[in-house]
């Protein structure tokens, strides 16, 4: 075992006392748990299953490019809302035309970030939206399932875009497009945390 560690250049590990080692592992666990807790906390605040998304396609260029980070808000569903027409982008009171929504089409896993071009609301019908990418020529009818021409706000949309940070999410695109990068990153992170002695 010792020889193996030496060969791998990890002789540092041998010098760690078991107690120290356990503390480091606990530390690593704490970091992971904190990140998870913050993500879930944000999810509760924004009422969205995925409060932060990374832009995956160029259909909203030049505003949103691949790898940009978007913050979503999903408390503007417009169920039981009966006030005056709210301005687009308002945090309460409903999704308006001109807002940028993120939706998942049934049966497909990829979240799509596009702008609302049409909105039809009735008392007894779901809020129907039609979306289009700013950089696309045609609207999204082709992206929806067969014989579906409008989105259902409550069922298919996971939130409206309220905040924007450029480029920061590109790392997740790298990780998902190059699977080896994921294991490499996790390995390096784990080793660094365990080897740190302070």
């Amino acid at each position: 075992m010792d020889a193996l560690l030496d060969q791998l250049g990890l002789s540092e590990l041998r010098r760690l006392k078991p107690r120290q080692m356990l503390a480091q592992i606990l530390n690593f666990g704490l970091i992971l748990a904190t990140a998870f807790m913050m993500w879930k906390g944000l999810s509760v605040v924004a009422d969205s299953p995925s409060p932060i998304v990374v832009v995956l396609s160029g259909s909203m260029e030049p505003a949103f490019q691949r790898g940009d980070l978007l913050f979503l808000w999903n408390r503007n569903l417009e169920l039981n809302y009966a006030g005056p027409t709210p301005a687009p982008g308002s945090t309460f009171g409903g999704t308006k035309v001109g807002e940028i929504v993120v939706y998942n089409v049934k049966g497909k896993d990829i979240p799509i970030v596009h702008r609302v071009m049409r909105r039809h609301k009735g008392a007894k019908t779901p809020l129907n939206l039609l979306t289009k990418g700013d950089n696309n020529y045609a609207d999204d009818t082709e992206l929806y399932p067969r014989n579906q021409f409008y989105l259902d706000r409550e069922e298919e949309v996971i939130g409206s875009v309220v905040g924007y940070v450029p480029f920061v999410g590109y790392v997740t695109i790298l990780l998902s497009e190059h699977p080896w990068a994921k294991s490499a990153l996790l390995g390096i992170m784990g080793l660094l945390v365990i080897l740190q002695r302070e």
Binding site: K96, V97, M117, R118, R119, H120, K121, G122, T125
Partner: peptide, 12 residues
């Protein structure tokens, strides 16, 4: 008409 509130983009 089932939908009483309608809004759509004409031009952008």
């Amino acid at each position: 008409n089932k939908h009483t509130e309608n809004e759509m983009v004409l031009w952008d």
